[in-house]
Design a protein around this nucleic acid. Structure first.
Lengths: 260, 260
DNA sequence: AAATCCCCTCGCACACTGTTCGACTGTTGT
DNA sequence: ACAACAGTCGAACAGTGTGCGAGGGGATTT
């Protein structure tokens, strides 16, 4: 209805030559509030106050709050440590990337809640894509698989971090520590899995440890698994490029014609 | 600080014998609003109006809006089609589950934004866990791996669906269709990837198709990849149970002692 | 020197949010 | 008959994002 695909990145930034507020300052301040007090604590008035200016002044530098969110999100992508290409095996680089992304997201838990809202098209996200695709290219992946592999790794890490953050938030909300926390968690899980004795049994056997440790182990398993899979796909190579190739434009036109 | 691990599931539900409002009705109505108009459209007043009652009446049946969200989320998990165990290969069952979860989430896009907020402990989520763990158990996975495998698959699908939904939302927001949409997307991506000619080149070669088709292909690749990986892990078997096993409680105590 | 312009800030106002509180029904139990 | 309770609701509070128009101040033009 409105302008097509509007987002911060399609618009030009304000000159920002001024001595007062600047887009960077705003984004930085927003990040600080978000990191310190979570996504609910960030309001325009609060942000303005932190910057020593009125709330509505921000709207000169930023169109909506949503745009601000896009900006801070990209900032986070900029913090993900990128493996120096051509240093070790591609598997190691993927591992470094995956772990790095996980800890970066953990440091900015609010990002997860924004992932379904807008596609990440900011410069840092693009840089990240480019670098990781290089890694996969050197590893021997070709064609559309370069996209697919990266998307797959990304999906795994994003999807992993979500529930992980949810659990940590719940733990922190409870305000408990040590044995009290363990007991409360056990209580909760037992009650939730009341009707599933196997789940309870497995929980008691394996999960009765520091949850961070458990989750680290599980993440490592998932990542190992994924790397195994990628290795297999790499070996499958040529066939993949046929099997997963998008239909040619001609075919595509044909099929859409038939559909209408 | 407050009561430990409070959530809808730790509390008892209201008797709900009344002829008027009931928890189920509320949840159903909330779902309808969410599906039809998205997460921002759901307000207590709106929901009350839809049910023909005052906004504050809802608070008799539900503690906070957050709790309501937990309830609707679990409802969604209940819609995920579960593969009938012992019918085909475990790979097929995982595929069915993954595809089913993906389409279910696509039908309720607002769920994705809630994933980082609270752990999913509702009855349908538990049922889903139980059933899928059975699948993995029959496949030959053992011990903690039963948790890890499920978590890995879940992470992949969740993390995949997030960006996918973000793109679709952006497309729908644009209000364009057909060639106009294609052109607008191309424009946007070109501008975003301005500094990365390889990305642009790859996009022009592979992505200039119906985005839904591309994403389906990519999802299929990721899933194939994951299944390959799981198969490898299954074969690795015994070692995995050592490698990924949580430290015994004794060891755990030791290590924490040394850390402090 | 005066007038015009534009960048930038900001107070007010609007419609809306989640939630608390106390008052109000109608039903049930004794 | 009275009391206890389940359930509903209106008013009110503090807070939200943001449009609008009024201004200030520095640079540029006349």
């Amino acid at each position: 209805m409105k302008e097509p695909f509007t987002s911060v990145w399609t618009r030009e930034s304000r000159p920002a030559k001024s001595p007062g507020l600047s887009r960077d300052q705003i984004v930085r301040a927003a990040m600080e509030i978000l990191d310190a007090e979570g996504v609910d604590a960030l309001s325009m008035r609060r942000l303005g106050a932190k910057l020593g200016s009125g709330a509505t002044s921000l709207y000169w530098h930023i169109a909506h709050k949503d745009e601000l969110m896009e900006l801070v999100m990209d900032e986070v992508y900029g913090e993900v440590p990128l493996p120096d290409p051509a240093v070790t095996s591609w598997e190691d680089m993927v591992s470094i990337f995956a772990y790095g992304l996980r800890t970066t997201l953990s440091e900015h838990p609010w990002v997860i809640s924004l992932i379904g809202s807008r596609p990440s098209l900011g410069p840092r996200a693009m840089n990240l894509s480019s670098r990781m695709q290089q890694v996969f290219e050197r590893a021997g992946f070709t064609g559309p698989l370069l996209d697919y592999t990266l998307s797959t790794v990304l999906a795994f890490v994003l999807g992993w971090t979500g529930p992980e953050i949810a659990w940590r938030a719940a733990r922190e909300r409870s305000g408990l520590t040590g044995e009290e926390l363990d007991a409360a968690m056990k209580e909760t899980v037992h009650r939730a899995a009341r009707d599933y004795p196997e789940l309870v049994k497995r929980y008691d056997e394996h999960q009765a440890q520091d949850p961070e440790v458990i989750q680290a182990l599980a993440f490592d398993f998932g990542l190992t698994c994924l790397l195994d899979g990628l290795r297999v796909r790499l070996a499958a190579g040529k066939e993949d490029n046929q099997r997963f190739a998008p239909p040619s434009t001609a075919e595509h036109d044909e099929s859409t014609k038939n559909m209408m």
